[in-house]
Structure formats: structure tokens, C-alpha cells
């Protein structure tokens, strides 16, 4: 059966086209482009909330998008045990909706960070099945507010439930820091308790094609399809 997916576009999303190409090229299945004001969502296996600056990131990153009309449908989709992936701004939106714990605050150096970063998987889930333990993935980040924060109690829950999907690490020859944006315990991506919703700051949709600097971003879709 073919893998169906959808990408939600908010005003100010700027990685929606990238996410569409990523899904089309890797899933070979149908990909729907959904405008934020729509009130129904086709039955799909995966929904991506793409990166960008939804509603200009005014008020707080992701805050206004989390009140969009389509969000009720997105929540239903997730409650249905189907996959939901928020990348960058999409991750911020997921925390604003409350589907994921914690919050994303400004990078520790208070500057936008647009560069390659390195991550590895922490706890196993369906999004990272095809990734080996200790395998280092090179994937670009591009964010101003990617510094994951939560209180100790939540952090313990995330650990005990094995909800931490990815953490930043050092690349083999790179001089980038281990924890590029100051996230608590270098967290780069987390899931919900049921592990069907993943939010991550790095952009796998910018690291999959042969001409990209790395193809490691493929592994996430490959994990879901396998």
C-alpha cells in the first residue's frame, strides 16, 4: 500500500515546498499540500508541519499557527495514532499546541544559527528505526529559537518514557560545539509519549538528495516506510 502524506502551509512557512519534495522523492506516494485555513485533512500516514516563520513568528514562534483552523484536524490525526512530524518551526508549533512537552527558547548565543549540525539517536522510535546506535547524522539547522527547555520534572518524564529521539553531538572533523544551541541535555528532537509525534530542529528535508551535502535526512522517511 502506498504511503500517503501531507504538508501544512501557514502564512510565513518557507520550507513547505522543501518538505513536499522530500516526501514526493522518498515516499513515492501521494503528497497533499494543505492550506492552514482548510478544515479537513485527507486520511494520510504522515503529516509534516514545515519550517519557516509562520505568522512572522510574531508574539512567539509557532504560537499563532497553533490556533489555525487546520490544527484541530492535525490533533485528530495524531490522536488516531498516525505520524506527525514538526520540523523547526513545526516543532515550535507542536509545543505550542501542547502535543509535545517543553518549549524552544532563543539560542544560547542569541543569534540565528544556520549551519550543518550533527545529531545521533537517543531512544528508539519509529522515526529513527533505520538509524544505527551511535551513527552520526549530518543535517543542517536554521533557527533563532531552537534551544529546547523544560523543567526537571518534565525532563525526567521524557527520559523515563524514552521520548528523546535525537541529541546534538560532535562531528568527526568538525569544530562545531557538541551542543550548538544550548538545549537542555543537547536535545535536538523529542516525541510524544506514544511516539507517533516527533518534533526536531534540524532539517532532514535539506539533506536527502544526491546534490545535498549529506543524505542522512533520508533515514527518517526510510524508518517510517520500512
Amino acid at each position: 500500500m502506498s504511503f500517503k502524506s501531507a504538508v501544512i502551509t501557514f502564512p510565513g512557512s518557507n520550507c513547505d515546498r522543501d518538505a513536499l519534495c522530500y516526501l514526493k522523492d522518498l515516499t513515492k506516494g501521494e503528497v497533499y499540500k494543505i492550506w492552514h485555513e482548510e478544515t479537513s485533512l485527507p486520511k494520510v500516514d504522515l503529516v509534516i508541519l514545515p519550517g519557516g516563520f509562520s505568522f512572522g513568528d510574531y508574539l512567539r514562534s509557532g504560537a499563532m499557527a497553533s490556533k489555525s483552523k487546520i490544527i484541530d484536524e492535525v490533533v485528530k490525526h495524531a490522536n488516531d495514532n498516525r505520524y506527525l512530524l514538526g520540523i523547526c518551526n513545526g516543532f515550535q508549533i507542536l509545543t505550542e499546541i501542547g502535543l509535545l512537552e517543553g518549549a524552544l527558547i532563543r539560542n544560547k548565543k542569541l543569534k540565528f544559527l544556520g549551519k550543518n549540525c550533527f545529531i545521533k539517536k537517543k531512544f528508539k522510535n519509529n522515526f529513527n528505526l533505520s538509524i544505527k546506535d551511535n551513527q552520526i547524522l549530518q543535517i543542517p539547522v536554521a533557527h533563532n529559537e531552537g534551544n529546547f527547555y523544560c523543567d526537571t520534572e518534565t525532563l525526567n518524564l521524557l527520559k523515563n518514557n524514552e521520548q528523546i529521539a535525537f541529541e546534538y553531538c560532535k562531528g568527526e572533523f568538525s569544530n562545531t560545539e557538541e551542543n550548538i544551541n544550548g538545549s537542555i541535555e543537547a536535545i535536538a528532537g523529542i516525541t510524544n509519549k506514544k511516539k507517533n509525534v516527533l518534533g526536531m530542529m534540524p532539517h532532514p528535508e535539506r539533506a536527502y538528495s544526491n546534490f545535498h551535502q549529506s543524505q542522512d535526512g533520508r533515514l527518517i522517511i526510510e524508518s517510517l516506510i520500512s
Binding site: 515546498r17 519534495c21 522530500y22 540565528f112 544559527l113 544556520g114 536554521a142 535539506r206
Partner: peptide
């Protein structure tokens, strides 16, 4: 890099 790292250089997915 201090300058360029503050810019998004890979958005649109076509940067080589």
C-alpha cells in the same frame, strides 16, 4: 563563518 552562520543558506533545498 560568524557572519554566514547567521544566514540561512540551505532553505529552498537547492543550495549546492
Amino acid at each position: 563563518s560568524w557572519v554566514f552562520d547567521q544566514y540561512d543558506s540551505t532553505v529552498m533545498g537547492d543550495t549546492i
